[in-house]
Design a protein around this nucleic acid. Structure first.
Length: 423
RNA sequence: GGAGAGAUGGCAGAGCGGUUGAUUGCAGCUGUCUUGAAAACAGCCGUAGGUGAUGAGCCUACCGUGGGUUCGAAUCCCUCUCUCUCCGCCA
């Protein structure tokens, strides 16, 4: 959620940013300013009346103590008269506040100045491409066929137990999951992240805090009896650790890493995008989250990019880093880098990580703040990134490292898997 | 799931219809003293919104949540949530 103060003082800047993000309803900004002005007027009149009511109430109390009942009753009549006005204005104010919030929730975050112009993913900027794309033999198999050949996971079995998009990992496939999770967690801990294992379900407040609600409830599984949501990413429970908190500046940055399964309904997906492990309803992911001082959040973003890049290098996968253009960025992000690995048998790039700086967009809604050197309470910046999401890493690991008679494991992973090839 | 008790500022803990945004203690901050520290003493010490200059000051709101009663509610009534104790069930 954008800060109203910024919109009030820099409406043109806000509009320019929204335009870069290809946000259509620019008129909302002016509408918001009008509502805000009206709201403040109503609030002022209401507070004036409330002030009078408070004074009267106090006077009545004093009169009663002095035993001057008649005078007190007279004041009571006055106070009752004020009540009508204040009740009316209270209702008006609540409506205006709702209207203001409603518009505010519709406005996406403003893009950072380094965000490239553009509307679709085709205009994303390739910042870097690295690693060797393997020259596979002709009968190289896509990962879903490799899974059958080596008995690594079974999607049909998942359908029987649950439904489409819920794979059953088996044997070395299952162990590979466990190995990757430990591998990712250990490297994050080495990089100074503090591990947390959060709940896999969250309440409504948390879902609202990170922006899944009110808009994206269709994306989440909902346990209606208890009104809990299955998390679509660890970002939700981990970032909510800092909801309604004020952090001392010396305690920044807060660096957390968490492994969780992620649950996404992914309504409307189809075709080659969902084949094999390309898109699932349940998958495992290790997520890194930071709460940082506004002056240092972009350095932090770069360090997160470096961390993720290091993981891909250790896994010996060909990858590229994209800086997303304004139109392709998420609603909440100010700057996003996507990481893609090349899946050599499918011959396509698969997104395995997305790392973003949200600046104060999330923390404004979360009320995640810090106390700066002048004792002033300010909104912190929040950042997060996948490090990494497992299924597509597995897909690309299997495809890129297949030899025809087995699949080689990258050296860095062997201590975790306990085997150096799948055959 | 059943019965009971409770939810107040960073923590502990008063208050139970009228200068209570809230006694007090601890923690924290500033000053005096000290070479420095400790101790002692004095002062400060919640958040949000509005208005001011992103200052001072002033105003309003907030004592788990949402309603209600009243001129006035942390204090009374109702709803929900959560915590604790006991019983039941259980990985």
């Amino acid at each position: 959620m954008l800060e109203i103060a910024l919109i009030r003082t820099n409406a043109d800047l806000v509009k320019a940013g929204l335009k870069k993000k290809h946000f259509k309803d620019l008129f909302l900004v002016d509408e918001l300013l009008q509502v805000d002005e009206k709201r403040r007027k109503v609030q002022q009149s209401l507070e004036e009346i409330r002030g009078k009511e408070n004074i009267l109430a106090k006077e009545i109390g004093d009169l009663f103590k002095q035993g001057k009942k008649a005078e007190a009753d007279e004041k009571k009549v006055q106070a009752t008269g004020l009540k009508e006005d204040s009740a009316r204005l209270t209702g008006e104010l609540a409506d205006l506040e709702d209207a203001q919030k409603d518009i505010l929730l519709q406005l996406p975050n403003l893009p950072h100045s380094s965000v490239p112009e553009g509307k679709t993913h085709e205009e994303n900027e390739v910042v870097k491409e690295a690693g060797q794309i393997p020259d596979l033999h002709e009968n190289a198999l896509p990962h879903w066929d490799l899974a059958k050949k080596y008995d690594l996971f079974d999607l049909e079995l998942g359908v029987k137990i649950t439904g489409a998009g819920f794979p059953v990992y088996k044997g070395k496939g299952a162990k590979l999951q466990r190995a990757l999770i430990s591998f990712f967690l250990d490297h994050a801990i080495d990089a100074g992240y503090f591990e947390v294992a959060p709940p896999h379900m969250v309440n409504e407040d948390s879902a609202r805090g990170t922006g899944q609600l009110p808009d994206k409830e269709g994306q989440m599984y909902h346990a209606t009896v208890d009104n809990f949501y299955l998390i679509p990413t660890a970002e939700v429970p981990v970032t909510n650790i800092y909801r309604d908190e004020i952090i001392e500046e010396r305690d920044l940055p807060k660096k957390n890493v968490a492994y969780t399964p992620c649950f996404r309904r992914e309504a409307g997906s189809y075709g080659k995008d969902v084949r094999g492990l390309n898109r699932l309803h349940q998958f495992d992911k290790v997520e890194i989250v930071q709460i940082q001082h506004p002056d240092r959040s972009y350095e932090t973003l770069e360090s997160m990019v470096k961390h993720i890049e290091g993981l891909l290098q250790l896994l010996e996968l060909p990858y590229r880093i994209l800086r997303l253009c304004g139109g392709d960025m998420s609603f909440t992000s100010a700057l996003t880098y996507d990481f893609e690995v090349y899946s050599a048998a499918q011959k396509r790039w698969l997104e395995v990580s997305s790392v973003s700086n949200f600046e104060t967009f999330q923390t404004n809604r979360l009320k995640a703040r810090f106390r700066d050197e002048n004792k002033k309470v300010r909104l912190a910046h929040s950042l997060n990134g996948s490090a990494l999401a497992l299924p597509r890493i597995v897909a690309s690991l299997l495809e890129n490292h297949q030899t025809g008679h087995d699949i080689r494991m990258p050296k860095a992973l062997v201590p975790y898997t306990g085997f150096d090839r799948i055959n």
